[in-house]
């Protein structure tokens, strides 16, 4: 599943480069320089960038989760992600050990990262993508 996603992404990138002159700027967003830009919010602009800068701290880089005296659930192959609402709600409001992140992420970042998680780590839920409006309504 993972391989397919990566393949799909690179095909799309190739197609994008053919129209490099008028390609949408989002295709070139580079979040590698966004680390620590602000001390109060995250400034990453892609779902992947947001994931790597905040979600990975507990759900781990490959979405595998972790277990100690308590556990962080794996996001990989997680059926709870079939619909975007649950993830959006948890990110905005938190629950249990999961802190509310609505203060450090904006609506678009939350929508992007939800869509990223729902289409990576063995998850294949490209339908009904989360939107910034959906996040705003959840706040």
């Amino acid at each position: 599943m993972r391989v397919m996603t990566i393949l799909a992404a690179s095909v799309w990138l190739l197609a994008g480069s053919a129209f490099a002159q008028d390609a949408a700027p989002t295709a070139e967003v580079d979040d590698s320089k966004a680390w620590f830009e602000s001390s109060s919010v995250l400034t990453q602009k892609t779902g992947q960038g947001v994931y790597n800068a905040i979600c990975a701290s507990c759900h781990m880089p490959e979405g595998e989760g972790a277990v100690g005296a308590g556990a962080y659930p794996a996001l990989a192959n997680n059926e709870m992600l079939e619909f975007p609402d649950y993830a959006v709600y948890l990110i905005v409001h938190g629950s249990g050990a999961m802190p509310p992140l609505g203060g450090v992420l904006n609506d678009q970042q939350i929508a992007d990262v939800v869509n990223y998680i729902r289409t990576h780590f063995g998850n294949d839920y490209p339908d009904e993508p989360a939107t910034a409006e959906m996040v705003a309504d959840t706040r």
């Binding site: 620590f36 919010v41 995250l42 800068a53 905040i54 979600c55 701290s57 450090v104």
Partner: peptide, 9 residues
């Protein structure tokens, strides 16, 4: 805060 999340990641 935001900084610590990033370090933690």
């Amino acid at each position: 805060g935001a900084t610590a999340y990033q370090f933690s990641s």
